[in-house]
């Protein structure tokens, strides 16, 4: 941050940036693992899933933040889940309208965004305590961080498992694809690899 940036502006950029890198929902907080592993077998699926999740996160953060003084404390979790489920249903039908093929390849995992712990944890930990503007920044940062992480996994798995990126072949014909990478086991291994890289970077930083 340069000194010319105002105090408020610095804070809002921080709110945005923390989700992208320092508190990345997948690599650092290890939240919302199920969709991360399940639909990251191609880069395209990963991006679509990330975008759908980010949209639900943004909308539910906004609504929770607006209603934060209206919702009684005792039933807050149930209310959050209802808000999230509504937006997930909207997203589900929207994706079906845009591309039936995409809807098929993502399958039940769009509906399962409802129980993505990332969204509920942002509603509970951030949106229920902060202003609408801040919640939007938080949701955008976390959402983009989630998309970024999904893309990292999806790209690695598609390049190694299929020899292509976004469906376009990038290796010469004699490349033998690593089938294991697009199978479930490959998801676990790729995520372990990325977490290893992040852990390594963190340890290096704390030593320096």
């Amino acid at each position: 941050m340069s000194n010319t940036t105002g105090h408020i502006e610095t804070q809002s950029t921080n709110e945005f940036l923390k989700g992208l890198w320092k508190d990345n929902p997948v690599f650092v907080q290890v939240l919302g693992m199920c969709p991360v592993l399940a639909v990251s077998n191609t880069a395209m699926n990963a991006l679509a899933m990330g975008a759908a999740t980010a949209f639900v996160l943004l909308m539910s953060n906004i609504l929770v933040s607006i209603l934060r003084n209206v919702i009684p404390k005792e039933v807050r979790i149930a209310s959050y889940i209802l808000i999230i489920a509504t937006f997930v249903t909207i997203t589900d039908y929207a994706i079906q309208a845009i591309s039936v093929e995409l809807h098929k390849s993502l399958g039940a995992f769009i509906s399962l965004i409802v129980v993505n712990c990332l969204i509920l944890s942002r509603a509970e930990a951030f949106a229920s305590k902060n202003s609408v503007l801040k919640s939007i920044q938080d949701a955008l940062g976390m959402g983009l961080g989630f998309v970024f992480a999904l893309f990292c996994l999806g790209a690695v798995r598609e390049i190694l498992g299929n020899g292509s990126i976004f469906g376009a072949a990038i290796f010469p014909d004699n490349f033998q694809p690593w089938i294991v990478m697009i199978l479930p086991a490959g998801g676990f291994f790729t995520l372990a690899l990325w977490l290893l890289i992040f852990n390594g970077l963190k340890m290096k930083k704390s030593k320096a």
């Binding site: 290890v30 294991v180 199978l183 479930p184 086991a185 490959g186 998801g187 676990f188 291994f189 995520l191 372990a192 977490l195 290893l196 852990n199 390594g200 340890m203």
Partner: peptide, 18 residues
């Protein structure tokens, strides 16, 4: 130390999945 915790669990899960 760098592999301890979640990373190790994920690798085991991958082998189990295989």
């Amino acid at each position: 130390k760098v592999i301890k915790g979640t990373v190790l669990t994920l690798i085991i899960a991958g082998i189990l999945s295989l």
